[in-house]
């Protein structure tokens, strides 16, 4: 197994881990962290696969994609945190209720 395959598999593992936690954890902060773990997984796969066997220079395109992705992820996280704070202020809880109503 080459190094990049290993990294890619770890990335996929992180993605699945994050997805699992996002569904299972009730606490909103944990959910947001889980989403971050998911995106880190995807970025890891991207970076790992950028190194092409046999060539010296890695492919620049995935790097550009990862940078864009990180920017997006940071803003999403900031937004999610604000939303979480608002919910906590409004409901006094850090979890989403099971049912929703007006």
């Amino acid at each position: 197994m080459t190094t990049e395959t290993l990294y890619a598999l770890v990335g996929v593992g992180l993605f699945i881990l994050g997805l699992y936690a996002l569904f299972v954890r009730a606490n909103l902060l944990r959910k947001i962290l889980a989403a971050n773990v998911m995106s880190s997984g995807v970025f890891l796969v991207l970076v790992a696969l950028a190194r092409r066997t046999g060539t010296v220079a890695p492919d620049p395109v995935p790097h550009a994609m990862v940078i864009t992705g990180i920017v997006v992820a940071v803003s999403v996280t900031a937004f999610a945190l604000i939303l979480m704070l608002r919910i906590a202020m409004k409901t006094g809880q850090t979890e989403l209720p099971d049912t929703w109503s007006e």
């Binding site: 996002l22 909103l28 998911m38 999403v76 939303l83 989403l96 929703w100 007006e102």
Partner: peptide
């Protein structure tokens, strides 16, 4: 900013995140 709207928005955010990931 209402309770229902905030909670709905949070759910929506997670769904849209998982979808785009």
């Amino acid at each position: 900013g209402g309770r229902a709207a905030l909670i709905a928005a949070m759910r929506y955010l997670f769904a849209t995140l998982v979808g785009s990931m």
